[in-house]
């Protein structure tokens, strides 16, 4: 049992370091193609967290939808525009610093506010629990949430029509 807890801790810290490091690289990479590749690493880290929390369906869907479909879309657009590090617009150094300071201040405030929140110290389930399995999620999705599910298909249709209408002009 103790061994399993330690392995879980090690996995959590490894996946967190992977996710945060590659997210920082997304924001800092000069070349937009490198940014997309680092974003794929970020999504793999987040999928690893989902699988660590035994939300297996969401882990796989995150990989297929984000790392598969959305990132291919980003890569296609970047290649279509022929962007590279030379054509990257450069921002004022002080504005960059202001962005980092603003993000850091927000992080400071949120950590200070949530440090002693009501949920502090509450335990959560890792590697057990069956609510994330596809059988239970599918049952809930097609009984309690069937109307939002159908509405989301209409949303997809309208997004497709919108993308074609905007891109065609």
């Amino acid at each position: 049992m103790i061994d399993r807890m330690q392995i879980t801790d090690i996995l959590f810290y490894f996946l967190s370091a992977l996710t945060l490091g590659s997210a920082i690289m997304v924001a800092l990479a000069r070349n937009p193609v490198h940014s997309v590749l680092w974003l794929i690493v970020t999504f793999f880290g987040i999928s690893g967290h989902y699988i660590l929390m035994n939300a297996q369906f969401l882990g796989i869907v995150n990989l297929i939808v984000y790392a598969g479909a959305i990132m291919v879309l980003f890569l296609f657009v970047i290649m279509l525009m022929n962007l590279n590090a030379d054509s990257e617009p450069q921002k004022n150094k002080w504005l960059k610093l202001a962005g980092i300071v603003a993000g850091g201040c927000l992080m400071l405030v949120m950590v200070a506010a949530l440090k002693d929140a009501e949920t502090a110290g509450k335990e959560m389930q890792l590697y057990t629990g069956d609510i994330g399995l596809i059988k239970n999620l599918g049952k809930a999705l097609f009984t309690d949430y069937v109307v939002p599910f159908e509405i989301s298909s209409i949303l997809f249709l309208s997004a497709m029509v919108g993308a074609v209408a905007i891109g065609k002009k």
Binding site: A23, K96, G99, A102, L106, M107, L114, M124
Partner: peptide, 26 residues
């Protein structure tokens, strides 16, 4: 595992996103 670890991880990820959105022009 206490849930704060995930709260702080999500805060850090969110703030990296905000800082990146503010400091890039692409």
């Amino acid at each position: 595992m206490p849930v704060e670890r995930y709260i702080f991880l999500a805060i850090a990820l969110f703030c990296i996103g905000i800082a990146g959105a503010l400091m890039r022009r692409n």
